[in-house]
């Protein structure tokens, strides 16, 4: 049931992105729609594999995290690029970290076990990059219009999700082994985090559309 709710949330985000970003031809917008479509497809397949056919879907999510890391890194790069000329250098850190840990984990335990260390470490790196973004944003001379700044809200969503998921990452194995009955709470935590992430992203797409309308009206 929770997985279905999750898929509905992700699907809503995809539909909103298609509606509000359809006139935005930037690479980030195209990647956003593509990524969200992948999210919905993978979640649906993953859910069917696990609940319908009782199959191990870890390999599927091992593939998915490649898309996740690439998309979030590019999104952060696009946001940082407007504030600093070192955006590429900053955003190469999550890519390098991801590649190294991913290869090590695959080498250590193969492709059929989920690469949790990779995603845990990546979460920390993403949080740090988000904080760098906010620091640079504060340091900027001119104030920003929060009602139309899509990038600000997109990064906020990333910060909420990856900072909040620290608890999930910290407790998941401990609970899975010692308190299997309490494990369900983490599923709810993840649901709340997903709801937060996609709600904030939906708002960022609305901001993107407002931003574009403002730009068009100023011409």
């Amino acid at each position: 049931m929770i997985s279905v709710v999750n898929i509905i949330i992700e699907l809503s985000c995809l539909i909103t992105a298609i509606i509000f970003l359809k006139k935005d031809g930037s690479l980030f917008s195209i990647l956003t729609r593509g990524y969200l479509a992948i999210v919905v497809i993978i979640e649906t397949i993953g859910f069917s594999m696990s609940k319908g056919f009782h199959l191990n879907n870890a390999w599927l999510y091992n593939i998915f995290i490649i898309f996740e890391a690439a998309y979030i890194s590019y999104g952060l790069y696009a946001a940082l690029n407007k504030l600093t000329n070192k955006a590429l250098m900053i955003c190469s850190i999550p890519i390098i970290t991801f590649t190294i840990t991913y290869i090590i984990e695959i080498y250590n335990h193969g492709f059929l076990k989920f690469n949790s260390l990779t995603i845990n470490l990546e979460s920390v790196v993403f949080v740090v990059v988000c904080l760098v973004y906010f620091y640079l944003l504060i340091k900027q001379k001119d104030p920003i219009d929060l009602n139309t700044n899509a990038q600000f809200w997109w990064v906020s969503g990333v910060l909420f999700y990856y900072f909040g998921s620290t608890i999930y990452n910290l407790f998941i194995y401990f609970l899975y082994q010692d308190f299997p009955k309490s494990y369900t709470i983490l599923i709810y935590v993840m649901l709340i985090l997903n709801l937060l992430l996609y709600s904030i992203w939906i708002y960022s797409y609305i901001c993107n559309s407002r931003q574009r309308k403002l730009l068009l009206s100023s011409y």
Binding site: S156, F163, G164, I167, F171, L175, L186, L196
Partner: peptide, 14 residues
């Protein structure tokens, strides 16, 4: 503990 910790971890970015 998990609920409290999650709450705190969400409060920080807020």
């Amino acid at each position: 503990i998990i609920i409290l910790a999650t709450f705190i971890f969400l409060l920080a970015p807020l």
